[in-house]
């Protein structure tokens, strides 16, 4: 795959998503970066801002298997991973795959199920495999989890465990569209929802090729050191109880490569690291109790840390 092919394919996905989600180019770009870096995405915002639609649109843009899991309080781990059933026909146990056996999994309202069920996703997300009854089963590639959650509500929800938050490469906040885009949304859904006419524009093989191509982007050592200095700064920040894990550094490394490639560069710049610091790092950190109740917010804290660490020239 050449650079031109890469750009063209990415633009196709972008245009396809932009038909459905209006005025959210930056969020779409971040979602694609997450896909290209081989990670998973957590979409977080108030109800009705288009989280599920965006996730579904991305799934439909890829010509692969798409499954949706509606997370409810009574969901069990086996409902996600799958389980063995007794077959009276031949008297054996037959494994029936759960909804995670897909290329794109939409975990809708993920925080409405208990941490016990959420834990079923830990192995799935980090290793792209399921181990049931001692047998390991690989998931189809590419494997991409898009989870949505509504951070406003507290009743009937369970906060995501830190271990699971750390497995989401990016956390994207959609936000409300601007006035012009919202007017556009109204008219675009006058006859039918544009999602209904959405067609797939990229195959699974192409996505895998895109992911491989991202890995060839040059990452200068000075920028890698800058990235690690940022991670260290979060670890020594007194307002934080939990800083960035090496998994977080790795996620920032890979997503910076993906961003550089989507912007047509074959090398990473410090700007890439800085632009992705908030979506990649903020959700992985834990505030100190005092800081939490004194109004400190994690994205602002990441911005503050960015203002402290010198950038390589």
């Amino acid at each position: 795959m050449t650079s031109d092919d890469f750009s063209q394919t990415v633009r196709k996905i972008e245009d396809n998503l932009a038909r459905v989600i209006r005025g959210k180019a930056e969020s779409i770009r971040l979602l694609i970066i997450s896909l290209l870096s081989g990670g998973h995405t957590l979409l977080e915002d108030a109800p009705g801002t288009g989280k599920t639609t965006l996730a579904k649109s991305l799934a439909r843009s890829i010509d692969g298997v798409f499954r949706r899991i509606q997370f409810t309080p009574d969901l069990l781990p086996a409902d996600i991973t799958g389980s063995s059933f007794y077959s009276p026909k031949d008297g054996t146990f037959e494994f029936r795959e759960g909804p995670v056996f897909a290329n794109v999994v939409l975990a809708d309202e993920i925080n409405r199920t208990s941490p016990r069920t959420q834990s079923a996703l830990l192995e799935v997300m980090s290793e792209s495999q399921v181990t049931v009854e001692g047998k390991r089963r690989h998931l189809p590639l590419p494997f991409f989890v898009v989870a949505t959650q509504n951070p406003i509500e507290f009743h009937g929800t369970y906060p995501l465990p830190e271990a699971q938050l750390d497995r989401f490469t990016l956390r994207i906040t959609l936000g409300y569209p601007d006035a012009a885009s919202e007017v556009d949304v109204l008219y675009s859904q006058n006859d039918r929802h544009p999602f209904e006419t959405l067609a797939s524009v990229v195959s699974c093989q192409e996505v895998l090729a895109l992911q491989e191509h991202v890995k060839s982007v040059r990452f200068d050592k000075a920028i890698a050191e800058y990235l690690v200095r940022l991670a260290e700064a979060t670890r020594s920040e007194p307002r934080l109880r939990l800083g960035i894990s090496p998994r977080g550094s790795l996620a920032l490394y890979r997503t910076a490569q993906a961003r550089a490639r989507t912007l047509g560069r074959d090398y990473v710049l410090p700007e890439d690291v800085r632009a992705l610091a908030v979506p990649v790092l903020a959700h992985r950190m834990m505030l100190d109790t005092k800081a939490k109740y004194s109004g400190v917010r994690l994205p602002q804290l990441v911005e503050e840390i960015l203002e402290k660490v010198p950038v390589p020239r």
Binding site: E162, A163, D166, R235, E237, L240, R241, L242, G243, P246
Partner: peptide, 8 residues
């Protein structure tokens, strides 16, 4: 003080 990577 933030602890380093390990969660447990």
């Amino acid at each position: 003080m933030a602890r380093t990577a390990s969660i447990a």
